[in-house]
């Protein structure tokens, strides 16, 4: 099946090269698309010099709109499967095949890679873990199935979801929000265990207060999503 790896990248010149090499090594069959979300550094140039397709947004649109540009591209170029992959080196290309299995078999429309389903120890700040835990409980309740890692941006989707996302993709907290929206559209969600790296470059320092604040904002966004009109598939 024709598969596209979508890598949203904003100022990732230090990690993007390694990410692309990692993918080439483990997923030689897939096409790679880097979305340069108005980076100020050489992210786009670095990716281009490695010979992958690069889409350069004219200015920073934010993660949601950047990823959606990738789905537009996937839809237009007739891809059967799209995989979202972070440009910061957190995601591991050797785990992509785990994500693809349920999609290729047709068991799910979207498959999310979960850090928490795997045995590997995932270390993170307590605040982040608490926020993710409460979010995952709430989302599991709303979509009627267990979701352990709703903020994971490591996911594979089929053609139906590619079409859905290219028309309708949330801007603010796209990972958790999109799960709720897909559920509302009657699409099938699934999760598989994956291993992730700790962030190699750049740190995300989340204090307890910020973790809670993030969580409240996402919960509000999700409640609004629940009452939103969602286009049919």
């Amino acid at each position: 099946m024709k598969t596209l790896l979508i890598i949203p990248a904003y100022n990732e010149e230090q990690s993007i090269g390694g990410v692309i090499e990692d993918i080439r090594e483990h997923c030689p069959e897939t096409d790679i698309l880097v979305i340069d979300d108005g980076s100020a550094d050489a992210t786009g140039k670095t990716a281009q010099s490695l010979g992958v397709t690069v889409i350069t947004l004219p200015f920073n649109l934010g993660i949601g709109a950047a990823v959606q540009a990738g789905y537009h591209y996937a839809e237009r170029n007739g891809y059967d499967i799209a995989v979202q992959f972070d440009g910061d080196g957190q995601h591991r290309a050797d785990q992509v095949k785990n994500l693809l299995k349920p999609i290729e078999k047709g068991d799910a429309d979207i498959c999310v890679g979960s850090r928490f389903l795997s045995r590997g120890a995932y270390e993170a700040e307590v605040a982040r873990l608490i926020a993710i835990r409460i979010l995952s409980r709430s989302i599991s309740f709303l979509v009627g199935q267990k979701i352990t890692d709703p903020t994971s941006g490591f996911r594979a989707v089929n053609r139906t979801v590619i079409r859905f996302f290219s028309h309708f993709y949330p801007d603010d907290y796209p990972e958790p929000e999109s799960l709720v929206l897909l559920h509302k559209a009657g699409l099938r969600l699934s999760e598989v265990p994956v291993l992730m790296e700790k962030r190699l470059i750049g740190t995300s320092s989340i204090t307890l207060l910020r973790g809670l604040y993030y969580m409240v904002k996402v919960l509000l966004a999700i409640m609004i999503d629940m009452i939103k009109e969602v286009p049919g598939r």
């Binding site: 397709t53 690069v54 947004l57 004219p58 200015f59 649109l61 709109a65 959606q68 540009a69 537009h72």
Partner: peptide
């Protein structure tokens, strides 16, 4: 403006290719 930016970026890539 979001949709336009995405469109422009995709078209520019096609043009360069």
């Amino acid at each position: 403006s979001k949709t336009l930016s995405q469109e422009i970026a995709i078209l520019r890539e096609m043009l360069e290719r």
